[in-house]
Design a protein around this nucleic acid. Sequence first.
DNA 1: CGTCGATTTGAAATCTATCAACGATGGTGG
DNA 2: CCACCATCGTTGATAGATTTCAAATCGACG
Lengths: 244, 244
Amino acid sequence: MFRSFLRKFEPRFSLSDADRDALEQANVHGRFVGPRTDIVSEGDVPDHLHIIRSGLACRCKFLPDGTRVILAFLIPGDVCDLNVPVIGALDHSIATLTLCEVARVPHDVLGRLTASYPSLDHVLRCAALVDEAILREWLLVVGHRPADRRLAHVFCEFLVRFQSVGLATANRYELPLTQVDLSDALGLSPVHVNRTLGSLKRRRLVTLEGKQVAIPVVEALKDFAMFDPAYLHLAPEANAPRVA
Amino acid sequence: MFRSFLRKFEPRFSLSDADRDALEQANVHGRFVGPRTDIVSEGDVPDHLHIIRSGLACRCKFLPDGTRVILAFLIPGDVCDLNVPVIGALDHSIATLTLCEVARVPHDVLGRLTASYPSLDHVLRCAALVDEAILREWLLVVGHRPADRRLAHVFCEFLVRFQSVGLATANRYELPLTQVDLSDALGLSPVHVNRTLGSLKRRRLVTLEGKQVAIPVVEALKDFAMFDPAYLHLAPEANAPRVA
DNA sequence: CGTCGATTTGAAATCTATCAACGATGGTGG
DNA sequence: CCACCATCGTTGATAGATTTCAAATCGACG
């Protein structure tokens, strides 16, 4: 059930069968959420932990003038709201971009689980810290780099993150995002996203066919984006498609 | 010893005397760090927890071309590296901007402390989550707003954060930052920071005399910056200077 | 067929960076 | 005390990046 989540971390942490069974049994309230719908809303005090099982979601805020700002993309295997109970309420919304399957574990059940299975607790905390590291990298990229490198960086990040959960080949994946979604995430106008995408295509750094993203020469794109996957804290072999 | 840290959180959490004593005794290795010096460097596996006691520091990364990017400002009372042991190594540096007094608690000692004093554990975790919330707000501001509003927002944030540790009056504080520091934090060129500061001064949104920042009409600046202190997760009364 | 959302394109206005130079300031050594 | 140096702040001119406004195109879908 939590295949994506487990796959992402098993290269680094060996969960025991007991850990795995515990997670399986806890997911008593899984559900589907339609596109462009809140999974958890700003101000909520969620009593469940949510994990994206399929589809694409995001952390976002809405400004008084109605503008949406996307703070992070959430892909299958990502944990949404692990630490929210500690601080009280969520200070941003978590919303789907596409249709998503969302696993739900009641926080009180989770508390008993992590107490009984320390390695599970560790893996979850680790996931939350990687999330924070991604946030820092975005601040760096979105705040300090020109539009073409921002886009290139996002394409690199999606490649590596999708690979870590088995959703990308060595240089190709499906990205069901709209240009407006990208503009809300990168702090650019939709028009400029469009032009910049065109520029990347002309330079043969990426290929876009519908929702399919292909990267002709991965190293070229990574160099252009100055992308160093270290911040994702993945196991070394997770950067390349797994062979065994 | 941890006055700033305690002051920041006591409006919300009542630490017992035992908690407080425990913290006091743990700080066996406090020290001063000169300006522009790493407290912890990228890649380090720190065996101590660091807390800023006085001075101004930052989280930062250095790009291959030597550019410095400031990801966060750390003020007295801020915790630097609580969760680093969970994930292994620090993926960014923590460096002083001015002369700083830094408290140090060995992580193994800290582990015993938090096990014995749950409210202390909770306060520390909460501080880490507020840090993350600040990071999200910065991503929003730095990535999606023009230069003048970025600067205005930083001035508002410093006002409220400094107030929460007793380092600001209702509308005034000392900010020992250089315009280059601001530019590295906000993703602007130093020249543009200078011009934009001039523009804010001409509009009487802020007053700068040396390192003294004064805000003639706090509400005006907050409105201009679209600043909502909710993300700082402070106690309600901490937004205004405390009276009792 | 008509509509809606998404993408694309053009032209002009605005914002920001870069380059270069100058001024102020404070510390340091002769 | 003064000359020198380094750092920071300021200003002007110019080029480049990005936004805005407006309109055209395209595709999916009822």
